[in-house]
């Protein structure tokens, strides 16, 4: 790979990662000038082009300003004594939570402790056996599995979900594309079934926030998610929060729990 090819590969990768084309060009030009000044081959100075572009893209996505001052909004989710029983198995026992706009709640617990069930209860797809659930009407929902249609392209997903939210096709695609860039991804004309696991998860997350919901219910993706994508996702969670949404995240890794507003630890099921 000669120097020009290296820079082209770097530029391409930056664009793939959703960096604004002008910004990508500037970063690539800077790198070229830096390499020229050093008299080194770019691969010698920066390492492999794609790896370097990935680091650059991640650094470039840092927020420009300090986080917005947060105002806690109205209650978007209130759980009081929520229980869920499947026959004799008690999956959720007396879950309480008050989540306001501008707050993040992390749901943690071992596998099988009812995390996904709780998410389903909040979404309304699972009926609670007891207790009360009050919830804002406009929600975004990104389940862990089967959240996307394997035979549809990302743009078709945007249009479909946009139609449900009463958005025009063009606006839905524009919004989806912009949100994808925030997660370091530029959607292309490939059906979802052929996207990598990590990219499918990004699509899943983007669909969950398409309508600027008041409450976002997110089953944190972990399969096929690399470290950078993972950090981007959490940056996104805080961005939603700063924009005033309430976020309920089911999380599998204990990531910076001191940064979230509520931690809900589920105890797990019990056979009786």
């Amino acid at each position: 790979m000669n120097a020009a090819e290296w820079h082209a590969a770097c530029d391409r990768r930056l664009a793939e990662l959703g960096v604004d084309p002008r910004e990508a060009r500037r970063l690539a030009d800077d790198s070229a000038a830096e390499a020229l000044a050093s008299g080194l081959h770019p691969a010698e100075l920066f390492g492999p082009a794609t790896a370097y572009a990935t680091s650059l893209a991640s650094a470039a996505r840092q927020p420009l300003a300090a986080p917005l001052a947060r105002a806690r909004g109205p209650v978007v989710l209130r759980l009081a004594g929520v229980t869920k029983r499947y026959r004799r198995r008690e999956v959720l026992r007396g879950v309480d939570l008050v989540l306001r706009g501008g707050e993040v709640a992390a749901v943690v617990g071992a596998n099988g402790s009812g995390k996904s069930t709780l998410l389903g209860v909040c979404a309304g797809s699972v009926k609670a056996s007891g207790g009360t659930v009050e919830r804002a009407a406009r929600i975004g929902y990104a389940p862990q599995q089967h959240g996307v249609a394997p035979y549809l392209t990302p743009d078709e997903h945007f249009r479909l979900f946009g139609a449900v939210h009463g958005m025009g096709a063009r606006k839905a695609v524009a919004t989806g594309t912009r949100l994808a860039a925030g997660l370091g991804w530029r959607p292309r004309d490939t059906v979802a079934g052929k996207l990598s696991g990590g990219t499918q998860q990004k699509l899943n997350v983007v669909l969950g926030e398409l309508d600027r919901p008041d409450l976002i219910l997110l089953d944190e993706p972990y399969q096929g998610f690399d470290q950078d994508s993972y950090l981007d996702l959490w940056a996104q969670v805080y961005a939603w929060r700063d924009a005033g949404a309430g976020v309920l995240v089911v999380t599998h890794l204990l990531h910076d729990l001191d940064k979230v507003d509520h931690v809900l630890e589920l105890q797990g099921s019990e056979d009786r």
Partner: peptide
Amino acid sequence: IPGGTLYPSLLRLEKQG
């Protein structure tokens, strides 16, 4: 320090103002 580590760090600091 490899350039692949150094320059992204500088970019991040630049983005943070």
